[in-house]
Design a binder for these strands. Structure first.
Length: 555
DNA sequence: TAGCGAATAT
DNA sequence: AATATTCGCT
C-alpha cells in the first residue's frame, strides 16, 4: 500500500506520472499565504511543502496586493487571512479573484458576516483555521478544475462564435473573451505587424491643422484577435477578467494629492501611480484618468449624480467653473518654471503648499462627498468592478468523462482523485460560482441573475440535484454525489433571515435579492472538515517521489 | 525600451 | 459617460 505503488492509478488516461507532482495534471501550484500569524504560517509552509506546493508567504494583504499588481509571479492559489491588520483582506481578495486566482479565505474566529462577504466576493472557500490537511492536500485540484473550466469556456465560445454575436448578452462576462468575429479571415494573419501595415495612408485626409485625420477607425487589433492569440500562446494562461477601476472620490483625491505633490511638469502617469501607491492600480489606468482630468472631463460620482438629475448637463455655465480647477498637470513635459519650487517641495515630506500654483488644490471639489472625512485608510479606494463575472457554468469534460466511469462509487483507485474533487469541489462549488456582482460601474452591466443563480448553487449543492447553474447531467451527478457525502460536512447555515448587515457595503443587487430569496437561509456555507477522510480517498501525497525543482521565487 | 499623450473602443 | 485599450512617437 505504500504510496510507491499506485500503478493502478492510471487506468484511464488519468495519468500515471507519479513522477510529477499533482499526478502530472498540473505542473506546479504556487500558493501564496497571506497571514500575520507566524505559527499558522509556519505550519502551513510545512504542510504545503509536504504536498509539493510552491509556497510564498506574506504578512499582510497590502504586500500581497503589490505583488499581484506587479504581476511578476504567477499565483495559483491564495490563502488569505480575513483579518489582515491592514484591513485590506477583501481588497486583496477582489484583486485575486480578478486574476482568477483560487482564493481561500481563512479566519481565526468564524463570523458569518465575513464568511458571507468572502464568498460573495468570490472566495473559493471560507475556512476556519487551522486548515484541514485534506484541503491542503487537494488544493491543486481546485486549481486544476478552475483551469479546465476556463479552457472549456473558451472553447465553447470559439465554437459558437459565429452565432453568438450579441446574442449572449446574458452571458455576462464573456464579452471580453468572446468577441464575435464578424470579419473572418483576419485571424489568419500571422502577426500583428502585417495588420498594422494595412492602414492605408491614402485614406487619410489632411486636415487644416496639418494633421492626419483618420477616415476610418484605426486598424487596431481587435480584442478578439488578442484573445485568440493569447490563448494560443499560453494554453494554460488564464484569461484575465476585465476589471474596471472605479474612480471614487477617495481615489481621485489620492490622485490629486499625487498631482499636487509631484507638481506641474512632473505629472506622468507612472510617477503619479507611484505616489498614489494604490495596489492594483496600473499606470494605464492612471494615464486614462489623467487624460480625462486634463480635459476637464471627469466628475466625481456625486457630481455625476447631480448633473444627471438636473438632466441638463447643460452646455453652458454650471459645471464649467470646475474647469480652471482641474487643469492641473497639463502637459507634464512642459515643465514650467514652477519646477524648482516643486522639486524642493518634493523632497520635503510636506508638500502641500498652498501657494502651489497648481490649480488643483486642496480643493474641496470633492469634499462634498463624505470622502474627505473618511479615515485615512484607503478603504474603498479601489473598487474593482468585475465586469465579466460570468463563469460559464460549463463543467469540464475531463472530469466528466472520468466521472462517468466512476459513477456509483467513490472507490476505484484511479478515480478517487476525481471523486474527491467532485465531492469537495461540488460542495465548494457554491462559492466557486457564487459571484454576485461586486459593484458595477453602470447599471448596464447586467449581473442581476448571477445572484440567484449562484445562490442556488450554494443552496442546492448540499441538498439536492435540482437543476441550476448549468443544468447538465454532469452537474447533477456531481451534486448528487455531494449530497450523499453531505453528512461529512457540517453546513453552517446562516441565520434564516439574515439580510445584509449594514456593515456589508454591498452590492445592492445582491442584498435586494437576498432579501427576497426564500432560500437565503442556506446562503452561508461553512465547512467543518472533521470527517474528511470518509469523504476523500486517501491517495497519499499527490506526488511521493518527485522532488520539484522549479524553484522560482517560490520555495 | 518604456512610457507618454492622444485617439479610439467599449 | 466613464474607463480601457491601442498606437505612433520619442
Amino acid at each position: 500500500m505504500s504510496e510507491e505503488q499506485k500503478p493502478q492509478i492510471n487506468t484511464e488516461g488519468v495519468d500515471n506520472s507519479m513522477a510529477t507532482p499533482f499526478y502530472g495534471m498540473i505542473e506546479e501550484v504556487r500558493v501564496v499565504l497571506v497571514d500575520h500569524d507566524k505559527d499558522f504560517v509556519t505550519k502551513m509552509i510545512d504542510l504545503l511543502k509536504s504536498y509539493k506546493y510552491k509556497v510564498r508567504t506574506v504578512d499582510m494583504a497590502l504586500e500581497a496586493m503589490s505583488m499581484l499588481s506587479k504581476g511578476k509571479e504567477k499565483v495559483d492559489v491564495m490563502i488569505i487571512n480575513v483579518n489582515s491588520p491592514d484591513l485590506l483582506s477583501f481588497q486583496l481578495l477582489d484583486q485575486a479573484i480578478a486574476l482568477d486566482i483560487v482564493s481561500l479565505v481563512v479566519c481565526d474566529e468564524h463570523h458569518k458576516i465575513l464568511a458571507k462577504k468572502a464568498l460573495d466576493n468570490g472566495a473559493y472557500l471560507y475556512l476556519k483555521k487551522p486548515l484541514h490537511e485534506e484541503i491542503v492536500k487537494y488544493l491543486w485540484q481546485f486549481v486544476l478544475k478552475e483551469k479546465i473550466q476556463k479552457e472549456r469556456a473558451k472553447e465553447g465560445v470559439e465554437e459558437n462564435r459565429h452565432q453568438m454575436n450579441i446574442g449572449d448578452v446574458n452571458d455576462i462576462g464573456n464579452n471580453n473573451i468572446i468577441e464575435t468575429e464578424e470579419q473572418a479571415g483576419e485571424k489568419d494573419l500571422p502577426n500583428t505587424e502585417e495588420q498594422r501595415n494595412n492602414i492605408h495612408e491614402d485614406e487619410n485626409d489632411v486636415v487644416p491643422n496639418g494633421k492626419y485625420k483618420l477616415r476610418r477607425k484605426r486598424d487596431r487589433k481587435s480584442t478578439k484577435e488578442i484573445n485568440e492569440r493569447e490563448s494560443q500562446n499560453s494554453a494554460n494562461k488564464v484569461v484575465r477578467r476585465k476589471v474596471c477601476t472605479k474612480w471614487t472620490a477617495d481615489l481621485h483625491e489620492n490622485f490629486m494629492e499625487a498631482i499636487q505633490r509631484l507638481g506641474e511638469g512632473r505629472c506622468f502617469p507612472k510617477s503619479i501611480r507611484n505616489v498614489m501607491s494604490v495596489p492594483g492600480l496600473t499606470r494605464l489606468q492612471v494615464a486614462s484618468h489623467l487624460q480625462k482630468c486634463r480635459n476637464n472631463n471627469w466628475r466625481t460620482p456625486e457630481e455625476r449624480k447631480f448633473t444627471r438629475q438636473r438632466s441638463g448637463r447643460g452646455s453652458s455655465s454650471g459645471s464649467k467653473q470646475r474647469s480652471s480647477f482641474r487643469k492641473f498637470g497639463t502637459m507634464a513635459h512642459l515643465q514650467t518654471n514652477v519646477t524648482n519650487l516643486q522639486q524642493h517641495q518634493h523632497n520635503q515630506e510636506t508638500q502641500r503648499n498652498p501657494e502651489f500654483s497648481f490649480p488643483l488644490n486642496t480643493n474641496n471639489t470633492f469634499v462634498e462627498g463624505e470622502s474627505s472625512t473618511q479615515q485615512h485608510i484607503y478603504r474603498s479606494q479601489l473598487q474593482v468592478d468585475l465586469q465579466y463575472l460570468n463563469i460559464n457554468n460549463l463543467f469540464n469534460n475531463s472530469f466528466y468523462s472520468i466521472e462517468n466511469n466512476s459513477v456509483g462509487g467513490i472507490q476505484r483507485q484511479h478515480e478517487p482523485l476525481f471523486e474527491m474533487s467532485k465531492g469537495l469541489q461540488g460542495s465548494i462549488i457554491g462559492s466557486t460560482y457564487y459571484r454576485p456582482g461586486l459593484e458595477f460601474n453602470d447599471g448596464d452591466h447586467h449581473v442581476q441573475n448571477d445572484y440567484d443563480l449562484n445562490v442556488n448553487a450554494i443552496n442546492i449543492a448540499p441538498y439536492s440535484s435540482s437543476t441550476m447553474i448549468s443544468g447538465t447531467d454532469v452537474e447533477n451527478e456531481i451534486i448528487n454525489e455531494l449530497g450523499t457525502t453531505n453528512a461529512n460536512f457540517q453546513h453552517y447555515i446562516g441565520e434564516p433571515n439574515m439580510s445584509y448587515p449594514n456593515n456589508i457595503p454591498a452590492t445592492s443587487h445582491a442584498s435586494e435579492n437576498v432579501g427576497s430569496d426564500s432560500n437565503e437561509e442556506n446562503y452561508d456555507v461553512y465547512f467543518d472538515f472533521n470527517n474528511m477522510d470518509d469523504l476523500f480517498q486517501d491517495l497519499g501525497p499527490p506526488s511521493v517521489n518527485l522532488p520539484n525543482e522549479h524553484g522560482n521565487k517560490f520555495d
